[in-house]
Design a protein around this nucleic acid. Structure first.
Length: 518
RNA sequence: GCGGGAGUAGCUCAGUUGGCAGAGCGUCAGCCUUCCAAGCUGAAUGUCGCGGGUUCGAAUCCCGUCUCCCGCUCCA
């Protein structure tokens, strides 16, 4: 074998800061700040030419594993704009809007109503008086405070509303309503009643289509519905690059099972999902499975496992939640609730037109299925995969090599075809035609690369994670220095991670690459 | 929302007391080059985050605002 690169790698390091990764993402066209040319819009990011490939590849891997390679799954793509009643009965309207207030002294934040409930009656009386209220109760007091936040701040501070954290009067900020859901007007007339929401989770689209899918596919339990799509949350503090953002994408499965089998399925999905992340390059030992404490569970959850990936720059953070949502959701959205023996505590539904239940084939009794929900963040997945892949290597030559060691199936660019010399027409035309033939195989992005010299091209592609660089040289075109033609129609294939090269005949390239890019 | 830090070319960052907008890398073009950011020649790229103020004059001083990072807070 000839031309094998032997520069030993000494140190291997991950990204030290998020900035380092952000910088690479911008420089190479993975991810840009949203609305950047107007100063940026907080909590939004745009995926560039390479970012969209990576993200699409991750979603495709998920869809393939969960839809194409299973016999118990259907796909769905529900609308983002959502009827207000969907999010009313789901419980989101009630749990996603909090009036919040801060104490400037202790730096603590409270829900206004919770804070007021902690106060002595005379303090509340003083607040009400300062707000000019005669008759009042807790509801009208909160309403009055929210109606005039500036005055509320003064009233609460001068009435010496106590901060439970330190037992001392606080210096209170104006209270602010905080609605986690984006409300939007629908239709030509802007009025109070013509609004809906941008969905805060894709899950609801699945629940409200449960009957449609059942009717159109003749599925029986257990089976699941998979969906990938955008969701929107008005996060208080978007932070950490694409980790916590206001517009993001979810990959969600709602897996419907018979009550009583839910705990077993919950465990099974936990294992399935851990294996999937491993297949995407996130090793099992870098994920901590958090059995979420009862007190921290979401309003719908019976039990939840959070998959916490050990981000090199952030520590352990959630990339997927696998929740046992019991019969809460279908129970919330179904009509005829009283006939269905629903276990979860649900709001009485007087609007739904569909029975979201199935019939036991033996007993003929109707019941509401339990739901196991593996819900993964696409953007968080992209960040995890990038973080895990980002590597700095110190080479023997003293130089630093930055390489994204992405799994080949996730790499934005699959193959770069490089002419050894770009001023030799025979070599460049061979390289161009080779590139065209490989491109036609449909393996993804295949590029002709002739920027700089060969070394630059390699390093450039290391940095964006291109698994294979093919180099067309003098041997390829039958003009070896020693006059032999034994290497005619072979190219060097350089491996991104090892930097090793081997010569492969062009007739074998398609198979060689396709095998390794899966 | 609080506290701290930052924002100047695609990236990393200089920019002195308020006095012509800079470097390295990258990018592009040409030359050269028989495999790991080699070399030579040339070129392009700036609302100095944005808006206002002070000043003869502002990247620099003041006010406001946006965005990012760190620590709190929040996180269905």
């Amino acid at each position: 074998m000839r031309g094998v690169w032997r520069d030993r790698k000494e140190q291997i390091m991950p990204a030290e800061t998020m900035d380092e990764l952000v910088s690479l993402c911008k420089r190479r066209g993975f991810i840009f700040q949203g609305s950047e040319i107007y100063g940026g819009l907080q909590g939004t990011y745009d995926y560039g030419p390479l970012g969209v490939e990576l993200k699409n590849n991750l979603k495709a891997a998920w869809w393939r594993a969960n839809v194409y390679e299973r016999d118990d799954m259907e796909g769905l793509d529900a609308s983002i704009l959502t009827h207000r009643l969907v999010l009313h009965y789901s419980g989101h309207e009630a749990t996603f809007a909090d009036p919040l207030i801060d104490n400037r002294i202790s730096k603590k934040r409270y829900r206004l109503d919770h804070l007021l409930k902690e106060q002595k009656p005379q303090v509340l009386e003083a607040v009400a008086e300062a707000m000019g209220l005669g008759d009042w109760d807790m509801t009208t007091l909160v309403a009055a405070l929210m109606a005039d936040p500036e005055k509320a701040a003064e009233a609460m501070t001068s009435a010496k509303v106590i901060d439970p954290a330190n037992g001392a009067p606080g210096d209170w900020t104006p209270p602010r309503p905080f609605n986690m859901m984006f409300r939007t007007n629908i239709g030509p007339v802007v009025d109070e009643d013509s609004y809906g929401y941008l969905r805060p989770e894709t899950a609801q689209g699945i629940f409200i289509n449960f009957k449609n899918v059942l009717d159109s596919t003749a599925r029986r339990l257990p089976f699941g519905i998979a969906q990938i799509g955008k969701a929107f949350r008005n996060e208080i503090t978007p932070r950490n690059f694409i980790f916590r953002v206001r517009e993001f994408e979810q990959m969600e499965i709602e897996f419907f099972v018979k009550p009583g089998t839910d705990e077993e399925w919950h465990q099974r999905w936990l294992e399935t999902r851990l294996q999937w992340w491993e297949d995407q390059g996130i090793p099992r030992h870098q994920i901590h499975v958090l059995d979420v404490p009862k007190a921290d569970l979401a309003h719908y959850s019976k039990r939840t496992f959070d998959l916490m990936y050990n981000f090199p720059t952030l520590g352990f953070e959630e990339i997927e939640g696998i929740a046992n949502r019991s019969d809460y959701d279908l129970g919330s959205h179904t009509k005829a609730q009283s006939e269905l023996n629903i276990q979860a505590r649900v709001m009485e539904n007087t609007d739904s037109t569909a029975k979201l239940a199935v019939q036991d084939p033996d007993t003929k009794a109707w019941f509401v299925p339990y739901v196991i929900e593996p819900s993964a963040g696409v953007d968080r997945g992209v960040l995890a995969v990038l973080s895990e892949a980002y590597t700095k290597e110190q080479l023997d030559s003293g130089e630093e090599r930055i390489v994204l060691k992405l799994k080949p199936h996730l790499a934005p660019i699959k193959v770069a075809v490089i002419p050894l010399a770009k001023n030799k027409e025979e070599i460049t035309s061979y390289a161009r035609s080779l590139k065209a033939r490989l491109q036609a195989l449909g393996m993804g992005r295949v590029l002709y690369e002739d920027t700089g010299n060969i070394g630059k091209a390699y390093r450039r592609h290391d940095e964006v994670g291109t698994p294979f660089c093919l180099t067309v040289d003098y041997d390829t075109i039958g003009k070896s220095q020693d006059g032999s033609t034994t290497l005619k129609d072979t190219v060097t294939v350089r491996d991104r991670d090892t930097m090793m090269q081997e010569r492969v005949h062009v007739s074998e390239l398609a198979q060689y690459l396709l095998e390794r890019l899966r």
